[in-house]
Design a protein around this nucleic acid. Structure first.
Lengths: 350, 350
DNA sequence: CTGAAAGCGCTTACAG
DNA sequence: CTGAAAGCGCTTACAG
């Protein structure tokens, strides 16, 4: 005697749907997954049953049968808590959806990096995702790839050949922001550079300079400050820029943490943001909506990028298992310019 | 002919371990799960094999067989991006570990709350987790429970009878912080209250007052400011407290966002933190380590609380399925006082 | 204390 | 275009 229905709560399975629609479970499966050719009439019958029974597939069952049950590692360092949270959110979301198992390893410094890599390999990972700044670590990539483990680099400014990557176009992002500031009427714009060790920092700076140049505007050295992507470095950079004899009407910071610092310093100097000073950031991390005024910034879809990285790594794993060559896809995701309260046209009296 | 081994990568299964150890898969399963009585010699043999083969169980397989494959809803409103990220991280972690499926619904206002609840019920959730501030919504709890769906409330200041909850002891947390400030030598301490709509806010305030009173210290009304847990409200509160004729030597803010605002205002007034003003927060969200100086605060283990909530809801679901009564466990997790750079003894010249 | 059998929900080949 | 069979990796009863 089958005991399929012993539980109190009726869990609708693919079999229930099949029975309801008067077809085989296979057909239901095909409809759900949008696979191959299914007769139009059947498709509709199945879809109606799915709806009527409120069926949602059990992912455990699916991933058990499909080869989705990969073991995926995430190796990170230098944790900006906010970024990492968002990133891991995407990774976990996609992971639980596809039934993959995740192994998270943190490292700091080259020695612990090697140890962490070893641990991942020992645990039998099928693929590894590298969020920034490890996405640019040749040593990490090489150690993993030479062990036959595919890698996906996330948010790198310079994707490596043969290594899959997901990123936004940092250059175009910074260009869009600079153009926006120009459109607002700003001509005298300060810029805070990011950590030179991080590849996207250079792209953001280059885009700023190029766009200013195209607009026929010179950027004197006094309008540039070096930052390290930290709030603290942003404080110093802001003071440098704002204590100049005649300050700029806008400051474009290479990330949000530093932009938040600029807002704080401006406030301290009695400058109203955005009436007397426009401040913009980059990344749209949670701090952008925490500070007041909220920051105009370039939204980097961190969670979506993490999800995309999971999809890419799973594809590489599948390819490897079936003996196909690497795809090494370079995926570029869309950024968006988010206008909030920290930006405005310069005061006419400036 | 079995095709168990067709894949290139050798995925170690429980069967491999069983063969290696010369026992049945059942015995391996029992050892792994620490179940029932297994002969000591066998246990060791199995454990050795697990290690030798680097076996890690496939969670999809496990959750398919066990009744772990519950469908769990998370209903949230009023998103503090940082808090929610951390919270979801914990939920997803636990969810993927136990093979549960997650349904996330956001709502704002009572009308959309009802709609979101309906959607969860329509999707056939087996249980729902309510992060703050929905953890205190009687209407949400009642609607779900009356539909027979168990609920776990997270971070509520006043747990309801018969509804499972996970929280920290906000009163003791604020008490610990106040004592710490007193130990540092502060006597004149300002306090910023949180949103009165959130139940923990009152507990934190009460603990501050009680502890000051016990120390024989009066808290004049001018030392208290009302906040709403937002950075913006913290700016206003900080100005109110710091522009008083003789300002306090320390300000205890009911959360980190407002404390970050205090630091910014202090900086603006030319006050050095912590030399001239100690600032402390509550929660230890990412902003606490973003600002400079980094905030001394009470660490609330948000991700761990989310994980605990998942475990509780799964327990309730299991109970319900097997016809047992609700457990309605109230779990209190430990907070920790994290000392960072924003606090110090008051200047002797103060 | 240990194991042989059956089945969780789904999808991959293989037939038609 | 559709379906019957088999099996993904694991654990729940049921026997011994």
């Amino acid at each position: 005697m089958p005991k399929r229905k012993e539980r109190g709560a009726a869990t609708v399975t693919i079999l229930d749907v099949a029975r309801h629609a008067g077809v085989s479970p296979m057909t239901v499966s095909r409809v759900i997954n949008g696979h191959s050719y299914v007769g139009e009439e059947m498709r509709q019958r199945v879809e109606a049953s799915v709806k009527a029974l409120r069926y949602t597939p059990n992912l455990a069952g699916r991933s058990l049968r499909s080869s989705g049950s990969a073991r995926i590692g995430v190796l990170y360092s230098n944790p900006s808590a906010a970024y990492l949270n968002q990133f891991m959110l995407g990774v976990l979301e996609q992971g639980s959806q596809s039934g993959s198992q995740l192994l998270i390893e943190k490292c700091s410094g080259i020695r612990s990096q090697r140890a962490a890599t070893e641990r991942l390999l020992a645990a039998g990972v099928d693929g590894v995702i590298l969020p920034p700044p490890l996405c640019d670590s040749r040593s990490a990539v090489e150690e993993l790839e030479s062990a036959g483990v595919p890698v996906v680099a996330v948010a790198t400014g310079s994707p490596m050949d043969g290594v899959a990557s997901v990123r936004i176009d940092d250059y175009q992002g910074a260009r869009a922001m600079t153009r926006y500031l120009l459109e607002l009427g700003h001509r005298d714009i300060g810029f805070i550079k990011g950590d030179p060790q991080h590849t996207p920092a250079a792209l953001r700076a280059a885009a700023f300079f190029d766009t200013m140049k195209e607009a026929g505007l010179a950027v004197p050295p006094g309008r540039i400050a070096q930052g390290l992507f930290t709030y603290r470095s942003g404080l110093a950079a802001a003071e440098q820029l704002l204590k100049a004899p005649n300050r700029p009407t806008a400051i474009f910071s290479s990330n949000d943490d530093m932009a938040a610092a600029v807002v704080s310093v401006a406030h301290g100097l009695g400058l109203h943001v955005p009436e007397e000073l426009t401040v913009t950031g980059f990344d749209d991390t949670p701090v952008a909506t925490t500070v007041w005024p909220e920051l105009t910034t370039i939204h980097q879809p961190v969670a979506a990028m993490a999800r995309a990285a999971m999809v890419l790594i799973q594809d590489e794993i599948r390819r490897k298992r079936s003996g196909r060559p690497k795809a090494a896809t370079h995926q570029v995701m869309k950024f968006t310019l988010v206008k909030r309260q920290s930006s405005a046209s310069p005061a006419t009296s400036a």
